[in-house]
Write a protein that binds this DNA or RNA. Structure first.
Length: 464
RNA sequence: GGCGGGGUAGCCAAGUGGUAAGGCUCGGCUCUGCAAAAGCCGUAUGCGCGGGUUCGAUUCCCGCCCCCGCCUCCA
């Protein structure tokens, strides 16, 4: 059963076939570091994380690049407003971004190129385009891509450019461009840019947004990418522009598979600062939610569907994760020392079904269904006393494979010695049938951050 | 106006031309000194609306309604 994805270009479910397996060259559009990333951004990054982890689970070597856009209009504007130099300003948000990636357990790409580190490569590409008659410098000193030279522009988005309705964002009059659709490759320096400027054959200025990705992707992954991801809003014009620039420079097909994830909504509404429903990850952490709870919510809806983010959903994630935690803890207890041999080979049909679901266009819902089927079935077997320690160990091994993709396992926790002592005192009180004393000790344990549960195998502790 | 995604139980959501996975919530039960937690079981004659094709449609076709996105630098 091959892995299949819905390719944006063809709009079809297609068998995945990288150019040089097992290598997969993956390029993912990263953040613009002028502010903290919001949960809509992270929805995309978590989808890409799932993609990477599943490909790795299937034996591919994923070489992944995620760019950091550290120069653009908003970044310049905000850095000037803050009185900081561009690099000092973006450093803050770069660091915050990586901290957020860690909190969400998103695997690090091999490369996080910053746009400001690749200006020479961008200039080289623009010169190449200019030499080919595709780029031209206009009277405003900026350099533009001559769209008339690239008739395939619009094919990814399936737009017929002749029929585009002019929107308020097109300002016909202000431009010296030859054609309204021509996009900027190099933006001439303006006094509003302050000291943000690079020298170029066309005078001082800075690169356009689209050329960043073309230059960095090509520099780090070569002219042909296996997969390129982003949010649906990047399809047009950003990814169209990338295709145009890259293919005109290299003469090769830039991307074999395009994957785009749908947007996130909050409580059924579009997320917007003006609507008061705009959340960064740290907003949610401040409210007491954990990174893995947010990860679970963002991970468990298929990437092609709009994701409705709600606090009810977060609470559901918390409950579902607790159930998984309890399940793995029970298995570990039951496996005992057998858990030392966790990596034994074992075929568990539900685990195979989990991966088979992900093969089918990352059908995470189907995969989670298989996982919870396994949880219910093995819990029942355990309740009946029909599960051997070796079987429990095999199930744990299966879980480890699953969690290598999901990355939602509870962090290892160690019970403090004083809590252990309280539990022992409480057991003594219970043995003496001193119920008031027992209840006081339970409260003391709770005050220390732990919930004690009296099971037939003795007291069990769970972090609150 | 063009292009695209979506409307399945209280919430999230999978899926199939043959009678609706899974998670959360809720209810019952088990366990328990009491609890809590956990576990087990149960909960949609129904899949936006109206037609059509078919022995049979949530699934295919036609029409319509609603939500969301993109339409030239928002994941």
């Amino acid at each position: 059963m091959p892995i299949r994805f819905t390719d944006t270009y063809s709009r079809q479910l297609e068998d995945f076939a990288p150019l040089a397996p097992p290598l997969v060259r993956l390029y993912t559009c990263g953040p613009t570091v002028y502010n903290y990333a919001h949960i809509g951004n992270f929805r995309a990054y978590i989808f890409e994380d799932l993609l990477q982890r599943h490909l790795e689970a299937r034996g591919f070597d994923v070489l992944r690049v995620m760019n950091l856009t550290d120069v653009d209009d908003k970044t310049i504007r905000n850095s000037l407003a803050s009185g900081q130099r561009l690099n000092d300003f973006t450093a803050i948000y770069k660091a915050a971004f990586f901290a957020d990636l860690d909190a969400l357990r998103i695997k690090r790409a091999q490369h996080f190129p910053a746009a400001t580190d690749y200006v020479p490569q961008m200039i080289d590409m623009i010169r190449d385009l200019e030499a080919k008659g595709i780029a031209y410098q206009a009277d405003d000193k900026s350099v533009y891509f001559r769209l008339s030279k690239y008739p395939d522009y619009g094919k990814l988005a399936h737009l017929n450019l002749d029929e585009l309705r002019p929107s308020g964002r097109i300002r016909n009059d202000d431009y010296e461009k030859e054609s309204i659709g021509d996009f900027a490759l190099w933006k001439a320096w303006d006094k509003a840019d302050g000291d943000v400027r690079w020298e170029s054959p066309w005078g001082p200025g800075r690169p356009g947004w689209h050329i960043e990705c073309s230059a960095m992707a090509t520099a780090l992954l070569g002219p042909e990418l296996d997969i390129h991801c982003g949010g649906v809003d990047n399809i047009f014009p950003h990814h169209e522009a990338e295709i145009a620039q890259s293919e005109c420079c290299t003469g090769k097909k830039f991307v074999r598979t395009w994957l785009h994830c749908a947007h996130l909504m909050v409580e059924g509404e579009k997320m917007a600062k003006s609507a008061g429903n705009f959340f960064t990850l740290r907003d949610l952490l401040d409210k007491g939610w954990t990174g893995r709870e947010v990860r679970y919510v963002l991970l468990t809806v298929n990437y092609r569907l709009p994701l409705n983010f709600t606090f009810e959903g977060l609470a559901g994630a918390r409950a579902a994760l607790q159930r998984l935690d309890e399940w793995t803890a029970r298995l570990a207890d039951h496996a005992g020392e057998k858990s030392e041999v966790r990596n034994q080979k074992s075929e568990i049909p539900r685990v195979e079904a989990f991966f088979a679901a992900l093969d089918d266009d990352l059908n995470i819902s189907g995969a989670m269904g298989a996982l919870f089927d396994l949880v219910r079935e093995s819990n029942a077997t355990l309740d009946r006393g029909d599960l051997t320690p070796a079987q429990a160990a095999a199930l744990l091994a299966g879980w480890q494979r699953v969690d290598a993709v999901l990355a939602i396992e509870r962090d290892a926790v160690t019970v403090p010695a004083e809590v252990h002592a309280l539990v022992e005192q409480r057991q003594a009180a219970r043995a003496a049938k001193d119920w008031p004393g027992s209840d006081r000790l339970r409260d003391a344990i709770a005050a220390a951050g732990w919930i004690v549960k009296d099971t037939k195998d003795g007291p069990k502790l769970t972090p609150r």
